[in-house]
Nucleic acid binder design. Structure first.
Lengths: 146, 146
DNA sequence: TCTGAAAATGAGAATCGTTCTTATTAGTGT
DNA sequence: ACACTAATAAGAACGATTCTCATTTTCAGA
């Protein structure tokens, strides 16, 4: 999926939900497409500071997460980081540093990927829980904190 | 591993770290051993209210997490839930409701379990990240929120 | 058993990420 | 252009968690 395709998909999804793809939101999406892992509101704010105040940023993140364009990822110290939703940018598999909370994406072997997919389906079919997706974290210490 | 064995292991680990296994901490551990998923400070407090004030509870949770006796699990709304560490109570695989944040344990097929274990080892051996364990979440909506 | 150092407790204030208000501004469809 | 709805901006408010500090408890060694 090309980068411009992602933008088009996002615009489409938002529009059909009656949500406007404003300039501030474009900047958020652009920052997230460049990142190699989820970003917090504070991290996003430091990249696009002048043009989008924090309160607007938080609202945009919430709205886009609600529309399933962004996926929230809850980390240490009550900090929530966001990344593009699974259907836009592939799966959510991370290396998480227990010290500083930094998050990086990792690739999973296809075999494991499909096994996880099967697991979600099996849970969904049990009827006990409306399983929609999965998230895998490998936890430890990053090079800086080791 | 029997329940009393778990207590003995916990006491041993704490003692060797110079940390006292006080009454309040015993109560926390007891509550977590009975639970079928991680509990937040507020949830624990409502179970052992009179005997342990919140500020002590938070401190005890932090200290025991530091000693790798408890494992923190970060959820919605900045709420952190704790459960017994992996080496005491098996692995950490959860059903997480995106609406209310409730968390339940799930069992994983052995095949998937060992594949995940291999993944952590592979990451650790890469030298880029000191991988120590993993956590898997199946996200969706619980029956109450569906 | 005493005694002193280290750890834990309890109460409350303080912190900080996040959410909520309210008034104002900007987009979209007719 | 008009009306309707959504988005913005600034700051106040909220709530989970952390910190401070004076007091109490626990443990190891004399």
């Amino acid at each position: 999926m090309t980068s411009s395709n992602v933008e088009a998909q996002i615009r489409g999804r938002l529009t059909e939900a009656g949500i406007r793809y404003t300039d501030g939101r474009r900047q958020v999406v652009a920052a997230l497409m460049n990142a190699q892992g989820p970003l917090s509101a504070a991290e996003l704010h430091s990249q696009i500071a002048d043009s989008v105040p924090l309160s607007s940023l938080y609202r945009s993140l919430a709205v886009m997460a609600d529309a399933d364009v962004l996926a929230p990822h809850h980390g240490t110290k009550g900090i929530t980081r966001y990344e593009l939703a699974e259907w836009l940018a592939g799966h959510h598999h991370h290396l998480v540093c227990v010290d500083c909370g930094a998050v990086d994406d990792i690739e999973l072997p296809p075999r494991l990927e499909s096994t996880l997919h099967d697991l979600v389906e099996a849970v969904a079919e049990s009827g006990e829980f409306a399983a929609a997706g999965h998230a895998l974290e490998v936890v430890g210490r990053c090079k800086a904190c080791a």
